[in-house]
Design a binder for these strands. Structure first.
Lengths: 226, 226
DNA sequence: GCAAGTTAAATGGTATACCAAATGCCAAAC
DNA sequence: GTTTGGCATTTGGTATACCATTTAACTTGC
């Protein structure tokens, strides 16, 4: 029930608030902090061996990311993610994946297309060898290349955040049987559309890819709560 | 060049940081603060007659909204919005409008459909009478009803923020000749799709509506800068 | 014994104090 | 005159102190 954090290491030259933000965020996404749990500035600051100020700033950022909810005159509590929340997040990701892919189609360079082709092959290979962790990493890289090719900083950062929610918060071993064979096909459809610089087609196939991933994801995740 | 803010009124019981955030945000969106201008915590705090703390928190929020940029060891400066930025923002809005409309189609109640029908008529009427301000207000209300019907808090708040950027930051008298006749048609297409609870169709017409609005907007806004 | 009022603890919001890094200016040395 | 070293100022980051509000417990009166 109670939380406890080890004192923070001050070795790094980064800002304490960012470290605190990462600590709290990971604790929530890893479910070390349960939904409904109250976060008390002073307590966290004492445990980390720092003052309230950076803790405050970290908590403010968590509020803006909706990972915690500020209840006036009550403090902040860890938000719960309902099934409806997950569905909303997946839907947003789907929309923005389609968007970023259609933008990327207009800007992508041959070099990145080559890297995508190579990655798509490797993903399938590694999965065939049973290296699921590796294939997931490569999959992330695949999408990251597309994200970056679009040169759309806002869409990129939205998608990055959403991606972390989806993969970290829900610790689903993301591999529905047969899904990776579909992924191979869909990745090639995406590469093909990007290669032809066909925005509308890229949008269509990226949307379908994200929708299928979302479906597979929801099927794997058995949700209890509403 | 230099900025100056009047001392803040402490009458209201809301948090000072929120007031400061609103003041700075409006100043940026209204171009009272020019891009590249440096924001100094102490200076703003002194001018507003408060301490640095709430100013700090307000500035942090502005950083997260990308209205100001934090340059390490330099301070925060007001971000400029390039044409590419506007295009990105319009594209995100288009995607999310299509999404929220498709969600709304599955959830909308007869009462809201009635209100939409009535609003669509009023918008056209008021525009016909030359009450452009009024028709714009009603138009916002029209979209707000759809936003709320979708019961998707994250999409809603994204769209809300984007809407403020688009309308406030760019002070375009948003009325390309002939556009409102199209709007009348498009609004009715949206109402029709929502009424049939046809998600895919709602998505299609909402996307087209947002795309056309974006086009009209970009045509009206003559951008000088890259 | 129960209820109401008063007080003390908890907690978040704000103000202020302190510190470290960086920048710029001034003086001294060449 | 130029360059370099050092000091002062600026500025943001962090710590701490103070205040207001709320909650809860305890006491006191019925």
């Amino acid at each position: 029930m109670a939380y406890h954090f080890a004192p923070i290491k001050l070795d790094d030259r980064g800002h304490i608030r960012d470290s605190v933000f990462a600590i709290l965020r990971n604790a929530i996404l890893d479910k070390k902090l349960e939904p409904g749990q109250k976060l008390v500035e002073r307590t966290i600051a004492e445990q980390l061996g720092i003052s309230r100020t950076p803790v405050r700033e970290a908590i403010n950022q968590l509020v803006l990311e909706r990972l915690v909810t500020h209840i006036p005159r009550k403090g902040v509590v860890v938000s719960g993610f309902s099934k409806a929340d997950i569905i909303e997040i997946l839907a947003i990701r789907t929309s923005l994946e389609a968007l970023i892919c259609s933008i990327a189609a207009t800007k992508i360079k041959p070099r990145d297309l080559k890297r995508l082709e190579s990655l798509a092959k490797q993903i399938t290979e590694e999965h065939g060898k049973g290296n699921f962790k590796k294939s997931n990493q490569l999959n992330d890289k695949f999408h990251e290349i597309i994200y970056k090719a679009a040169e759309s900083p806002r869409v990129y950062s939205f998608l990055y955040t959403l991606h972390e929610y989806i993969t970290k918060f829900t610790q689903v071993a993301y591999s529905k049987p047969g899904r990776w064979e579909e992924v191979w096909v869909e990745h090639n459809e995406i590469i093909e559309a990007l290669g032809r610089h066909d925005s509308s087609q890229a949008e269509v196939v990226a949307k379908r890819h994200a929708e299928n991933s979302s479906k597979a994801f929801l099927q794997m995740a058995n949700w209890e709560k509403d």
